[in-house]
Design a protein around this nucleic acid. Structure first.
Lengths: 214, 214, 214, 214
DNA sequence: GATGAATGAGCCTTCATTCAT
DNA sequence: GATGAATGAAGGCTCATTCAT
C-alpha cells in the first residue's frame, strides 16, 4: 500500500481523465492569459502537472488546442440540442429554449466565453475553428432559421427568416463578447434580458423582456 | 555615402509618416497573422522597412500595439461623429447615420475588422483596450442610448432605451465578428441589411430592411 | 488477471530471449534511423514490446548500445574464426576464408553494416568501440598480418606483411561503407569481387577476381 | 571611436565571414562531439558567439549542416581537381596526384576526416549526403576510372578499370576511417604509404611504397 | 515480469530588444 | 535617421529515466 498523500494528485490516472483535466486547464489558461500567452508550461501548471505530460497526451500544442475547441463545440451542441428537445413542438417555446440554452450556467461561464473569444479573435485559429465548428454552426443556423420561419408564419409576422435568425444569433454572440470585454461585470440575467428584448422586437406577441409570453 | 535611388523610399521621411506607415502595417499583420504571430519583423517587412526602425519609432512592441489601437479607436470615433453631424437633428436620421457609419468602406475593411477582433479576443490586450477605447465606447453608448430614447418616445414605441441601444450595438458587433469569422464572404450590404432588420424590428415606422424610411 | 491470448507474446520469456530481441531491434533501429535518432521508444516499438521494458532489461540506453555493439563484435569474431578453422593450414585458403567471412550473409546484412557504420561515425561512441572491439580488432589484425606474411614468403612475393594486411582490411571496410552509403544497391557478390581484385593484385598466383585459385 | 577590446570579437562582421566561422565551428563540433551531440549551443560556444546567431545566419540546424557538408564537398573537389591539373597528361602522374590530393594537409585534418565520418555514419544524413556529394562523387569516380583505364592499357596490365578504381577509392576511404577510429594516431605518411602499397600492387611498374616511380 | 503514465533536462527555434556602424 | 548583426529569454518538443500499478 502506498501512503496516501492528500496534497499530491494521484500519480496515475486514466487516459481520459488526464486529457479532460488538461483540456479544462487549457480553457482556464486561454481565459486568463489569452491565446498568445497560452503556453504548455502554463497549462500544465494550471493542471498541477508537468509540461511533458501535455505532449505525452496530446503530442502537439496544436492538437491540444484543437481538442479543446472540439470539446467546447461538442458541449455547446449537446446543450442547445437538449434544451430544444425539452421544449416540445411549439416554435415559440423552441426559440425561447435556444435563447436560454446559451446562457445556461454550465455553458456561459467567464472562462468558457473567454476561451471562445480567443478562438474567434486569433486569425491563426480560424481554419481550426472552421474545421471543428463549421458543421455545428451550420446545423445551429439551419435550426434557428427554421424555427424563426415557423414563428414568422404565425399571426401575420413579416420578415426574412434567415435574416431574423441571424440577428438573434449575432445578438447572442455580441452579448457574449460584451460579457467578456466589458469591465463592469454583466450578469447572465442582464445578457438574457438583452437577447429577450431583441426577440420581443421581432415577435412581440410571443416574447417580452422577461422571455417567452406564456 | 548613399546615392539616391529613385526606387528606394526616401531616406528621410517625416516622423509621422513613418509612424503611420508602421501602424498600417501592424493592422495588416494583425489581420493576416493574428495577434499571437504578429512580430516586429513581419510588421517591418509589410511596411517595407528595416527591422530596427520599428523599435526606433515605437521603443517597444507594446507601444506599437497600443498606438495601433489608439489609431483605430480615433478613426472610428471621428467617423461616427462625422456621420452623426451630417445627419442633422432628427433622431431617426441620427440612428440611421450611426448604423451606416460602422459600415463605411473606410472603416469596415477586412483588415480593420480583423484587427479589432484581435484586440477583443486576446485577454492580454484587454487592459489596453479599456485604456484606449473605454472612454470612446462610453461616449458612443451614451449617444446611441440618447438617440434610442428620443426615438422610443415617438409615436408610441415602448422599451428601455439602454437595452434597445445595446441590442443595436451588439448586433453591429456580432455582424462584424461574423464578417471576419464566417468563411463565405459577407458583403457590407448584407451586414448592413442585417443591422437594418434589427432596427426595423424596434422602430418599424422608421426603419425597414433597406434602412431609414424617408 | 490477464487471460492468455495466443496472439500476444508470452508474458514470461527467458531473460536472454528478451535481451536478444531488444538488441536485434536496436540494430534495426540504428540502421533505419541512425544513431542520433535511435530512441528507446523506437527500439521498443520495433521489438513489439513496451517502452518500460528496455530500461528493465538494460538499465540505461548506454548499456543497451554497449551490449548491442558487444553482440555485433562477438558474432563477427565467431564468424571469421569459424571460417578460418574450416580453411585448414594453407595460408592462401586461410586468407580466402577471411575475405569470404566478411561477406557471409549472416554478417553482411544491410542492417548490420549500417549499425557498424553508426558506431564508427559517431565520435561519442568511439570509447565504447575501443572498449568493445579493440581486442577483437587487434586479434584480427594480427591474424591477417600473419597470414599475409606466410603468403608473401611464398614464391617470391615482396612487401610488408602488415601493410598488405592493412590494405586488405581497409578495402573490406571501405567496401562495407560503400555498400551502405552508395545509392544503387551493391550486391554482396560485387563487394566480394572488389575485395578479390585487391587480393589478386597482391597475390596474383593465388587469387583472381573470382577468388582463390585452386 | 570605440575603445578597442582585444578579447572581444568584433561585434559586427560581414555576413560571409560569420557564416564561414560558424561552419568551421560546426566541423570542429562534429569531430569532437559527434553528429548526435552536435547542438547549436555547442557550435555557437565553439565559435565564441551566441546561439541565436546561428539561426540568424542559417535559419535551421539542418541548413547549417547542409552548408557545412557543401563546404567540405566543395573544398574536396577543388583540391583534387587542382592536384590533377598540376599533374599534366601522364596517367601515372595523374593517379599519383589523386592519391596525394586526399592526404593534403589542408584536407586531411583530424577534424575534417571526423566530420566526413559523421555524415557517412549517420543514416539520417544520407539523403543530405547524396544531395550534396552525389554529383561530386560521380565525377571523381569517372575520373579515377578513366585514369586507371589508361594505365591498365599500358605495358600489359590486366584488369577491369572500374574495379581497380574502386579498390583504390575504398582503400583511401578505409584509411580515412582508420585514421579516425584507430586510437594510436596514424600519421598522414603512414596513410599515404598504405594507399601507395595498394597502387603498387596494381601498377608495379609505376608505383612503389614510396609513391610514383619516376 | 511488464506496462505505460509521469517527470524534467536539454534541444531547436522564435523573437523582442540592443547596439555598432 | 536607418540598418541589420547580435544577444538571450522563453516557447514547443523530444526523450531518457523513474515508478505506481
Amino acid at each position: 500500500m502506498t501512503k496516501s498523500q492528500p496534497d499530491q494528485p494521484p500519480r496515475k490516472m486514466s487516459r481520459d481523465t488526464r486529457r479532460a483535466q488538461l483540456i479544462e486547464a487549457t480553457i482556464e489558461t486561454l481565459a486568463l492569459r489569452g491565446y498568445a500567452r497560452t503556453t504548455l508550461t502554463e497549462v500544465a501548471r494550471t493542471a498541477g502537472l508537468s509540461h511533458g505530460l501535455v505532449n505525452f497526451h496530446f503530442d502537439t500544442k496544436e492538437k491540444l488546442l484543437s481538442e479543446t475547441l472540439a470539446l467546447l463545440a461538442e458541449e455547446y451542441r449537446l446543450n442547445w440540442q437538449a434544451y430544444l428537445e425539452r421544449a416540445g413542438a411549439d416554435p415559440a417555446a423552441q426559440l425561447a429554449a435556444l435563447l436560454l440554452a446559451d446562457f445556461d450556467p454550465a455553458i456561459c461561464t467567464p472562462a468558457r466565453l473567454s476561451a471562445w473569444c480567443s478562438f474567434w479573435g486569433e486569425a491563426q485559429s480560424r481554419p481550426l475553428y472552421q474545421a471543428q465548428c463549421g458543421a455545428n454552426d451550420a446545423a445551429y443556423n439551419a435550426c434557428i432559421a427554421e424555427i424563426c420561419g415557423q414563428l414568422l408564419a404565425q399571426r401575420g409576422y413579416e420578415g426574412d427568416p434567415a435574416r431574423v435568425a441571424r440577428v438573434l444569433r449575432v445578438t447572442i454572440q455580441g452579448v457574449w463578447l460584451d460579457m467578456i470585454t466589458t469591465t463592469p461585470d454583466y450578469t447572465i440575467d442582464e445578457g438574457l434580458a438583452t437577447v429577450h428584448a431583441c426577440a420581443a422586437a421581432f415577435f412581440p406577441r410571443h416574447f417580452c423582456a422577461a422571455g417567452l409570453i406564456l
